[in-house]
């Protein structure tokens, strides 16, 4: 009999897992609640990826073509997991939506990803009140669709500020963790912005700049050296509006003390939170969450994909904030862990 594995979520981690699982000899069903494949990369239409400025659409084409062309992979978009039961190590999974059927799976990979923190939950940023305050994801959409303009009046911004750690590292909003990628993504975006706005003032307001490992010079230094981006150490206290322009209020903790600074466009580096799908699936498949609400890795160091429920594996941002490159790597890690788990039970 064939051995089937279900992958839930069709972002970079899930698509990679599906392809690798198929290469390892499994029949794979990919269940995705949206109508499209590619997860956050597709949703926000990332054109240029952190860290290497490679093409987002090209990455998606690569990931999607592989699963589309693979006869052992069934793609169920517009489909959700309704109900799960388990008997003798086999999951019976009832689906709803475009493919309302019940599927037997020997193992499941949860690749349910993240949602961006909604800055409207933290009133001090004025997001949703002042039109020129946008999120980093919205900036990606602007990059995709056309020239950068101020949402309030359609004018070319002469000054742009990035605010770091929005919704991250902040007990006041309930997220005490670092979202890991926003510093580097903001640096990448500032370099891209410079191409469009050769004369604009671009300022980054940070508490720490966390451009890990090889991202340090390739993003953080480069943004200063090549793009003339200015970094100010000080977490923004509040955003208000003066004469139709957002004003940032804060303390330059190293140099100039208190400031009030108007900008034409404010980009909020909104952090990552466990997606709603991650929470729902954790509940349905009875896997534990860690204290921040992501799926708990049973052996964080030993193997990134193990949950505390045998037969259920995790890959990508469902288990914590991470970059696309790490999510894709975890798609492979989870596939190998599934292989390890099933090889003792069934003949391939």
């Amino acid at each position: 009999m064939s051995t089937s594995v279900m992958v839930i979520g069709a972002g970079p981690a899930g698509l990679q897992a599906a392809s690798t699982l198929s290469h390892l000899g499994f029949d794979v069903t990919v269940v995705e609640q949206q109508q499209y494949l590619g997860g956050a990369v597709a949703r926000h239409q990332y054109q240029v990826l952190m860290p290497d400025f490679s093409s987002g659409p090209e990455l998606l084409r690569h990931l999607i073509e592989r699963v589309n062309e693979d006869p052992h992979i069934k793609i169920y978009t517009g489909t959700s997991v309704e109900d799960v039961s388990e008997s003798r190590d086999i999951f019976s999974i009832t689906l709803s939506g475009a493919h309302a059927e019940t599927i037997q799976s020997h193992a499941v990979v949860l690749a349910t990803g993240f949602d961006h923190f909604n800055p409207a939950r933290d009133g001090k940023y004025g997001y949703g009140i002042f039109p020129d305050v946008i999120t980093g994801a919205e900036l990606e959409e602007m990059f995709a669709k056309g020239p950068i303009r101020r949402p309030s009046n359609g004018e070319v911004p002469q000054s742009v500020a990035f605010i770091y750690c929005v919704g991250s590292r902040d007990r006041q909003v309930g997220n005490t963790y670092c979202s890991r990628v926003c510093c580097a993504v903001s640096a990448k975006q500032s370099i891209e912005l410079r191409e469009q706005l050769p004369k604009a003032r671009i300022s980054m307001f940070y508490m720490d700049v966390r451009t890990y490992g090889l991202w340090e010079d390739s993003l953080y230094w480069r943004s200063q050296e090549e793009a003339g981006v200015v970094y100010v150490k000080g977490r923004i206290a509040e955003v208000t509006e003066q004469h139709g322009r957002p004003v940032l209020k804060g303390e330059d903790t190293l140099v100039r003390g208190p400031f009030e600074w108007p900008f034409d466009l404010i980009v909020l580096a909104a952090g990552m939170e466990p997606s709603r799908g991650t929470h729902d699936m954790a509940k349905k498949f009875q896997v534990s969450l860690e204290s921040h609400g992501f799926i708990k890795q049973a052996h964080t160091i030993h193997n990134a994909s193990l949950t505390d429920h045998p037969g259920v594996f995790v890959a990508g941002a469902a288990s914590g904030p991470k970059a696309i490159e790490d999510s894709i790597a975890e798609g492979d890690v989870a596939s190998l862990a599934v292989f390890d788990y099933l090889k003792a039970k069934v003949t391939l």
Binding site: M207, G234, R235, I236, A237, E238, K249, G250, T253
Partner: peptide
């Protein structure tokens, strides 16, 4: 965290 939100 020495972030400056308080003084800001």
């Amino acid at each position: 965290l020495n972030c400056g939100v308080c003084s800001g």
